[in-house]
Design a protein around this nucleic acid. Structure first.
Lengths: 148, 148
DNA sequence: CTTAATCTCTATTGATTTAGTAGAGTTACA
DNA sequence: TGTAACTCTACTAAATCAATAGAGATTAAG
């Protein structure tokens, strides 16, 4: 299961993706539109900012904007910064590899072998789907394919 | 990430799969062989028993045995009983469906649509791989295919 | 029929993660 | 200069994870 936080992050990004270009959207507006607790959303957007996915403008008329176009932001990268590794085992993580303390002999670990397939299949979906696909499923996917 | 408990469960089952037919294996032996804390493993095997995956014999000469042949026990069913739902969102779970309290309009939920693909891909791997495949990767997979 | 080996069951615990809440601080537009 | 916005750090209640503890039930062997 992905966390509530990740779900909120993805929803918030779809709101930003639907906003007029260059027009910042306020935290309060996103929170209201998506029924996300405002203070919690503040933290989430801050995370996304620190990770280079969105930018913000402070003061009056401030708000958040996407840093990259929506079709360049994958579900995978969002999940990774919010929820951590995609892999089902630490010894299969690309970004946070850690040897399993029990199993030595990683190459012939029976379980690892199976979950490597799971990880591949999951990554294939998550990194080929973007926020643009989520906003306008049909058209988004088409654009993504055209740019691939 | 799957839990440590699930990893232990899968490893324990591979030990049972490798045992001689009809020969019970003691908890202590499994624990020692796989470096699993014994008391923790007791709970895990009890769970697996309650869920109809293994059987036990008490008293002297007792131990655990697989209830079904190893090629009939999928990774998916083990994960499900130990870690809970496979789906990445409650509203995508087969065994524990629950409506997301935020998103109404499930049919056009932008996020759900993407994670449905993730769930499908994951299930495809987890329910087509068995404990037998884990024990003897090549031969196991072959047998599974022959029986499919 | 007693004993020792083995599984069974329930409770407890410490650490970590999750899902927020709180509040003071900073920036920038009008 | 005021106030509407984002920024940052800390705190908390509840749940989950990874065990540990210990008394109880069952069975094979002697």
């Amino acid at each position: 299961m992905i966390t509530q936080k990740a779900k909120y992050a993805l929803r918030a990004l779809t709101v930003l993706a639907e906003a007029d270009d260059g027009e910042p959207v306020m935290i309060s507006d996103i929170a209201a539109q998506q029924k996300i607790p405002k203070k919690f959303l503040e933290q989430i957007l801050l995370d996304l900012k620190h990770q280079g996915i969105v930018v913000s403008r402070r003061g009056k008329q401030g708000g958040y904007l996407l840093l990259k176009p929506a079709h360049m932001i994958t579900f995978g990268e969002v999940l990774r910064v919010i929820d951590g590794p995609i892999a089902p085992l630490p010894c299969l993580s690309i970004t946070a590899y850690r040897k399993c303390d029990d199993c030595d002999g990683e190459q012939n670990c029976q379980i690892r072998h199976v979950f490597a397939k799971v990880a591949d299949a999951t990554r294939k979906v998550l990194f080929s789907t973007t926020i643009a696909d989520a906003v306008a499923p049909a058209r988004g996917a088409e654009v993504t394919r055209m740019l691939a």
